[in-house]
């Protein structure tokens, strides 16, 4: 299986663009009010893992306005097909779905050629991870991880099994809604994002303490994928659409002045 390739192999990093070709302008400030705060006691683990001191606000420098560039050759042919990329003697069991969408920045520009990584439980809510001991069975043909890259217009898609809800040790009877974890790089380290996709209509969504870390309903709505019958494959797979927004990059109207800091 070609899922894993040594990313340290020389030559995997794309030959660097000349500095003149690098995108210019700072990544726009993150609106932290639209994200969960660090300390959210309803999600118990956050209590001891949240800083008590304020973040130190920093202007982005060259290390924040740039980020790793991954080649499309990083990916094997089945990496965006979770129904088949761990197949042993058949295909994964469960509700076959396609998840697709567009990655944009806050200015509405597509984010092309960026890596999207996803991971999830199987149809029964069981993760293929050494630390998951939930009694629901593993699916011998389902691994639960995949990767894809956005195309030149920022579009991505992958195929998978709709994950099942699962219980977790928070308040004794908390169940996670069906969800798919995802991770994005964008073109700058300051755009890095890890989050979770949920499914339209899931009644567990309003009960979830992790979704409940988000301050307002509009923010929670932005994590809900919509059923997309237009892109479903008849007699094969339903489709969900999920667009993702990364931080924008502002224009450089004026060069920085040395005395400005």
């Amino acid at each position: 299986m070609s899922r894993l390739i040594d990313v340290t192999r020389p030559g995997l990093a794309r030959p660097g663009p000349e500095p003149a070709e690098l995108p210019r302008g700072d990544i726009m400030r993150r609106d932290r009010g639209a994200h969960p705060p660090a300390f959210t006691p309803g999600y118990k683990t956050s209590v001891l893992r949240s800083p008590r001191r304020a973040l130190v606000s920093l202007e982005p420098g060259p290390g924040e306005n740039t980020g790793p560039v991954f080649r499309a050759s990083l990916l094997g042919p089945l990496e965006n097909d979770l129904i088949r990329n761990y197949a042993r003697d058949g295909e994964a069991i469960g509700e076959r779905i396609i998840v697709h969408g567009k990655v944009l920045d806050e200015c509405g520009r597509p984010v092309p050629h960026t890596l999207l990584e996803v991971w999830q439980a199987n149809a029964g809510g069981r993760y293929r991870h050494v630390n998951d001991t939930y009694l629901a069975a593993l699916d011998p043909n389902f691994g639960g991880c995949g990767r894809c890259m956005t195309d030149a217009e920022g579009n991505y898609f992958f195929r998978t099994i709709r994950p099942g809800p699962y219980p977790w040790r928070n308040n004794g009877s908390d169940w996670r809604p069906a969800h798919i974890h995802f991770s994005l790089f964008g073109e700058a380290f300051a755009q890095r994002l890890v989050s979770q996709l949920y499914f339209e209509g899931d009644p567990l969504i309003p009960l979830c303490p992790i979704l409940g870390t988000l301050p307002d309903a509009a923010a929670r709505e932005r994590l809900v994928a919509r059923l997309d019958m237009g892109q479903s494959v008849p007699f094969d797979a339903l489709a969900y659409r999920f667009d993702i927004v990364l931080r924008g990059r502002r224009q450089t109207f004026f060069e920085n002045k040395p005395e400005g800091h």
């Binding site: 726009m28 993150r30 609106d31 639209a34 994200h35 969960p36 999600y43 956050s46 944009l104 920045d105 806050e106 200015c107 509405g108 974890h181 991770s183 994002l193 890890v194 989050s195 979770q196 992790i210 979704l211 870390t213 988000l214 509009a218 923010a219 929670r220 932005r222 994590l223 993702i244 927004v245 990364l246 931080r247 924008g248």
Partner: peptide, 11 residues
């Protein structure tokens, strides 16, 4: 502007 997709824990 468009709103950045909110973060969630990596779990």
């Amino acid at each position: 502007y468009l709103k950045e997709t909110p973060s969630q824990t990596g779990g």
